[in-house]
Design a protein around this nucleic acid. Structure first.
Lengths: 266, 266
DNA sequence: CGCGGTCTTGACGACACTCAAGATGTGTGG
DNA sequence: CCACACATCTTGAGTGTCGTCAAGACCGCG
């Protein structure tokens, strides 16, 4: 496999230019990339946890099933994301993971993470940063669920997806594929599917969001951000390219907050 | 300072017996332990992020303020917890942190984390595990906020606190200090303070929870767990003592799920 | 063509919010 | 030691957002 074909290496390169040694180390950790079908379950809650995955193509989500038959979707994974970091300290899965689309994933076993810790400080720091960013996404979703109205929840979610897709460069205008059903959106936002439908209807009448099957257009993304009271600092900072490079990262981290301007106009 | 007086070392010892070298490394990272008053703010959202803290005595919480004047409490920190790991990849704070009690905290600067990555695989793995556990707590709170009734939310929160206090060994029966006001509980659970009061009244009549000022008694903790539909796997696994010891940790991690028995009675 | 999944729309109801007034407890200063 | 102010908590009444139930429309697929 060519070094540039690795989905892990591509993902890590978002944070920092890697040395060839680091690239080789990453590549050795990678096993059995494979195709998975839409709807297939990578693992379920309480399965033994022994590996991570990198999502190379397609969308996925993690979820928890509840006693009353409902479920909660915890996070949406896009191409390039690492899945399963959550369970590093656990022997069991805390959440299930399923594919939304057809896709491609790469597996690498839990225990080999220690090889990384042993051999590359740079990669260790990047892993920590990735975990840190995932936690930031989770925190923002928590606030969204706890404190906002149905309109704000949906607006916030759609705008977050819009920004994340912008960052991966897969997008230029307010027009993109959103392969989630309304029921999946409801499970993500702690709403009923019926109410998601109503909210979309309201957005359509206001010209905020137009949804057609699995496609979404945002005539005025900024208006949507205002409805959601969106604050994008939890998405901006962490993906700054070339964030770490050995010991100099320390200096950058402690004074990088001067003179910021985010990619999104206020 | 004696090695055993360090609050960081005590905390890390929960996971693994440390070598003297590791202990010295930790100790060098520790700076300026100090007293802080109840209600004081360690930092606010969007402050520059340049250090972590370990909470040695007292309780603390992290929070986000929202546009409409309300706020959301994200997590409750107990003695021994590390504060601020969330912002490792960020140059700004994503959430404020304030003290609930009078307490004692130890600071250590962000950049020195890289020293740990460089010098000790064991400590790196423990830090990852701690971050992983915090993410598990956050995830559970998210499910709690999204999908449960007010009764379940409050029951779940109280029972989680009960288990966490049990784990720190600060507790033997269902009788403990809970220094949060009803308004703080409301901000944690996404409810109004009024409704928290009503819910406590209901619990009192049912004999589930007796709350008196900042003190709580649980006549029947298991009954409370049933009301909350509490599943404790997110708390059990990660604090297993002597979880990592160098390379052998790898083996333990990949097969630790056979024949488990948690520390908490079923 | 008929079936099943997804979405839409309506009617009704419940859980939790807001507003408001009063009770209780606590700390401060006279 | 009392008086007062202030925070916290309690309880009631009225309202609204969102869930549930249900029927029907739309669409892709076999």
């Amino acid at each position: 496999m060519n070094l540039q074909d690795s989905c892990i290496i591509r993902h890590f390169n978002h944070f920092c230019r890697l040395s060839d040694d680091d690239k080789k180390l990453l590549l050795r950790l990678e096993e059995s990339p494979g195709h998975v079908k839409a709807g297939s379950v990578l693992w379920q809650e309480e399965d033994p946890a022994s590996e991570f995955c990198t999502l190379s193509r397609g969308w996925a989500y993690s979820y928890r099933n509840l006693g009353d038959g409902s479920r909660q979707i915890l996070e949406i994974y896009l191409p390039g994301d690492i899945i399963g970091l959550r369970e590093f300290a656990f022997s069991q899965r805390l959440a299930g993971v399923a594919m939304i689309d057809d896709g491609v994933i790469c597996h690498f076993p839990h225990r080999r993470l220690l090889d990384i810790f042993n051999q590359s400080t740079t990669l260790t720091a990047i892993l920590f940063a990735i975990s840190s960013r995932q936690q930031a996404l989770l925190t923002e979703r928590l606030v969204n669920l706890a404190r906002r109205t149905a309109h704000q929840k949906l607006a916030h979610f759609i705008y977050e997806m819009y920004l994340r897709l912008l960052q991966t460069g897969a997008l230029s205008d307010g027009d993109f594929r959103l392969p989630l059903s309304q029921e999946q959106l409801a499970d993500t936002l702690g709403l009923s599917a019926v109410h998601v439908s109503r909210t979309f209807s309201a957005f359509r009448e206001q010209g905020l969001v137009l949804r057609e099957r699995h496609h979404v257009t945002l005539p005025d993304p900024e208006a949507l951000a205002r409805v959601a009271e969106f604050d994008d600092c939890y998405l901006n900072d962490s993906v700054r390219p070339i964030f770490f490079d050995g010991t100099e990262a320390a200096m950058r981290m402690s004074n990088a907050h001067s003179g910021d301007e985010g990619p999104v106009p206020k």
